[in-house]
Design a protein around this nucleic acid. Structure first.
Lengths: 153, 153
DNA sequence: GTATTACATGCAACAATGTTGCATGTAATG
DNA sequence: CATTACATGCAACATTGTTGCATGTAATAC
């Protein structure tokens, strides 16, 4: 285990997670530790459903998971955002250098394309605001839908 | 009532709407006409719920409304997009010069702020794609949440 | 004007997702 | 080890969206 400094630790031991939870002002319960551990090791944002599935047999109560996730977000340990299909997805806060790609959603067929273009320049933030994530969402009609011309005026 | 030319007609007569529906390849039923009329006159994107409410007593069946809206989108007469609270909102296609403002969502409290900044330059679209709408979504922590520091690492 | 028929509608039932209240369990504290 | 406030699990409910099927009706042909 080299590199005992810096942010991007990958495997985080349970006691350390428990401490993080406690210093955020709550009890270090198995539920919170397990969810936090999952989010810590997940390479991509997880949905409520993903987490339930990942916890397997000994899954938490659905309601408890909702509450754990809400608490994680409220306490600033995690962030939640809607994906392109409007499903909430959760990530560890600060873990985020998601290469902010650009999404194009077709108004005809609903498909989502990931465009490979440079990220737009972030605007100046108002006093006191901190910017963590940036996403450009485009919509219109994709080549397929334009070609088949389904109902275009 | 001057100005008998140009796009931005506001009140559209039912027969005209019926024609538009028929030329999109479907039957001009009361349900479709009423919904299309609503969308035509609405100054802002409407949710499923808005439309049900606006239709009042003689509202359509919930399922029918879903199907009408889906058809409108599939046929290209309308577009649907998720608002910042993940609710589907529908607008007439082509009606759209929504001043594309920029949204900032706070990861702490969930509030959404509308920033007043210039819209980003649209990227080059792939062959055959047409761009209708563009939206920049930012997230992070707002001034309030940063100040009260609820749980920030 | 009437008959035909494919397309639309309404209803019932269901599925997925999210919320609330309350009794019980347990992590933290002394 | 006892206490207790906080967390959990359960049941019930709310909202949003989907599917199958019987019935109604817009468009077309007659």
């Amino acid at each position: 285990m080299p590199d005992s400094s810096s942010p991007p630790l990958i495997a985080t031991a349970a006691p350390e997670l428990a401490d993080r939870i406690r210093s955020a002002g709550a009890r270090a319960t198995p539920a919170r530790i397990r969810v936090l551990a999952l989010l810590t090791s997940a390479p991509v944002p997880l949905s409520h459903h993903d987490i339930e599935a990942a916890l397997g047999d000994a899954s938490l109560d659905r309601v408890t998971l909702y509450r754990v996730l809400d608490w994680l977000v409220a306490s600033g340990l995690a962030v939640k955002r809607a994906d392109e299909r409007r499903v909430w997805r959760f990530t560890l806060a600060g873990g985020g250098q998601h290469h902010s790609h650009i999404h194009f959603r077709c108004d005809g067929c609903g498909r989502v394309y990931c465009l490979d273009a440079p990220a737009p320049v972030p605007p100046v933030m108002p006093q006191g605001f901190t910017l963590a994530h940036l996403e450009l969402d485009l919509s219109g009609r994709c080549a397929d839908c334009n070609r088949s011309g389904s109902g275009v005026r």
